[in-house]
Computed example of a mutant assay.
Amino acid sequence: MTGTLYGLGLGPGDPELITLKAHRILSGVPVIAYPAPDTGPSFARQIAAPYIGAHQLEVPVIVPMRVERFPAQEVYDGAAETLARHLDAGSDVAVLCEGDPFFYGSFMYLFERLSGRYETEIVPGVSSMMAAAAALGRPLAARNDVLSIVPGPLDDDIMRARIEAAGAVAIIKVGRHFARIRALIKAMGLTSCAGYVERVSLAEQRVLPLADVVEDSAPYFSIILIYKGGEGWKARTAAATE
């Protein structure tokens, strides 16, 4: 009998946003794997830390954080074979995922390599996009609004087209692209419709209208929500914290 592979969505950062199902599995599996940078701690592990026991084996999947491309396929090939050895030995393995495993998550690359060989279960998690809307105090979309999810690294022309085509927009992976994205939003006359959230659900969370952000840079964990649909919502900041 081989073990079961679990992809556990942990939510955006607050350990209390882990689902009951993810908590049950996380507390019971003998092997826990998680992505980790080659410098600094693993954010996924930090989220799950209150629920990890000393009896559980931890397997960090070291993923170098670089602007330039690196041999990611080799990283996931090696990680998949490491986890396969535990699964072959009959041990269940839970891979911890920030947010949701299938929403821009690195788990999908392990899923691609292992799901055909082992029983696999995905436990969805709260995405940063949903958490940001809650923190901003403004719904994402309603009725027939089209919601577009736009990655920050996209070129301006492509990003402009995606924003123009949607009634509501979530710009993710903002980070080092913040100044350029903010300039584009201003040029499109949408600054008053945009809210900014960084480090959502964490103690250092910041929530404010995009127009009130004075910095020219943003942390990796930041998101911009734009609403230009048919409802009268503004980029207000209920319960904002600085």
Rank of each mutant, 00 (worst) to 15 (best):
L26T: 11
S27V: 00
G28H: 06
G28L: 02
V29S: 04
P30C: 07
P30E: 12
V31N: 00
V31K: 00
A33M: 08
A33R: 12
A33H: 07
A33Y: 05
P35N: 13
A36M: 10
A36K: 14
P37W: 12
D38G: 11
G40I: 10
G40T: 01
P41H: 15
P41L: 10
S42T: 12
S42D: 04
F43I: 14
F43Y: 13
A44L: 07
R45P: 07
R45K: 15
I47Y: 11
A49D: 07
P50L: 13
P50W: 13
Y51C: 03
I52G: 10
I52K: 11
G53A: 08
A54W: 15
Q56I: 05
L57K: 15
E58R: 09
E58V: 01
P60L: 02
P60M: 07
V61T: 05
V63W: 07
V63I: 15
M65E: 08
R66H: 12
R66Q: 11
R69A: 14
Q73A: 07
E74F: 03
V75R: 09
Y76E: 00
D77Y: 03
A79I: 02
E81T: 02
E81Y: 01
T82H: 12
T82W: 09
T82G: 05
L83R: 13
L87P: 14
A89I: 13
S91A: 12
S91V: 04
D92L: 03
D92R: 01
V93Q: 01
V93S: 07
V93P: 11
L96E: 02
E98V: 06
E98C: 00
E98D: 06
G99M: 06
G99S: 07
D100F: 11
P101K: 14
F102R: 08
F103P: 04
F103T: 12
G105I: 09
G105T: 08
F107P: 00
M108I: 03
M108D: 08
M108G: 12
M108A: 12
Y109L: 01
Y109D: 06
L110F: 10
F111K: 14
E112R: 14
E112D: 13
E112G: 11
E112M: 05
E112H: 05
R113P: 01
S115D: 02
R117G: 01
Y118P: 00
Y118T: 01
Y118E: 02
T120G: 06
T120R: 11
E121C: 08
E121D: 06
I122K: 15
I122W: 06
V123R: 06
V123L: 07
V123K: 04
V126G: 07
V126D: 01
S127C: 13
S127T: 15
S128G: 15
M130H: 08
A131I: 10
A131E: 02
A131L: 07
A132D: 05
R138V: 15
P139D: 10
P139R: 03
L140K: 05
A141S: 14
A142P: 06
A142E: 12
N144L: 11
N144C: 02
D145P: 07
D145K: 05
D145T: 06
V146M: 09
V146R: 14
L147T: 13
L147G: 09
S148L: 00
V150E: 02
P151V: 04
G152T: 11
P153A: 06
P153N: 03
L154K: 08
L154Q: 08
D155S: 10
D156H: 03
M159S: 09
R160N: 04
R162C: 07
I163M: 09
E164W: 03
E164C: 02
G167F: 12
G167E: 15
G167S: 09
A168T: 04
